[in-house]
Design a protein around this nucleic acid. Structure first.
Length: 92
DNA sequence: CATTTGACGCCAA
DNA sequence: TTTGGCGCCAAAT
């Protein structure tokens, strides 16, 4: 049994290239479906290039850019760029 | 140790 | 359909 943050790191690390998971999904895999918020808090605090946190997006990311895909410790701009580069498709 | 903040999500009006 | 409010969890102050 690991701490929530550790589980989150594992799940995010397991995300295959070109795939995207919502915070809710990651939280669910981590053990708490309602901990979507906590997932963001952990990812924001812990920097780690081994963890493609840019593949973790909001559930309502399909909405107008006003909300964006969520934040990113390296800049939301970079996050979107990476997703596009990975040919990842999330909503639409 | 208690309180506030925040990369979220869903329900109600 | 769009806007507002509530709930949940973990980390920071």
């Amino acid at each position: 049994m690991k701490n929530f943050s550790e589980k989150v790191f594992e799940v995010v690390r397991k995300i295959p290239r070109g795939e995207t998971l919502s915070y809710k999904e990651v939280a669910r895999r981590a053990g708490n479906t309602k901990a979507a918020r906590a997932v963001g808090a952990v990812l924001r605090t812990n920097f780690d290039p081994k963890i493609p946190c840019h593949r973790v997006i909001r559930s309502d990311a399909c909405l107008p850019e006003g909300r964006g895909l969520g934040g990113y410790n390296r800049g939301a701009k970079q996050k979107i760029k990476l997703l596009e580069k990975e040919k990842a498709v999330w909503g639409s």
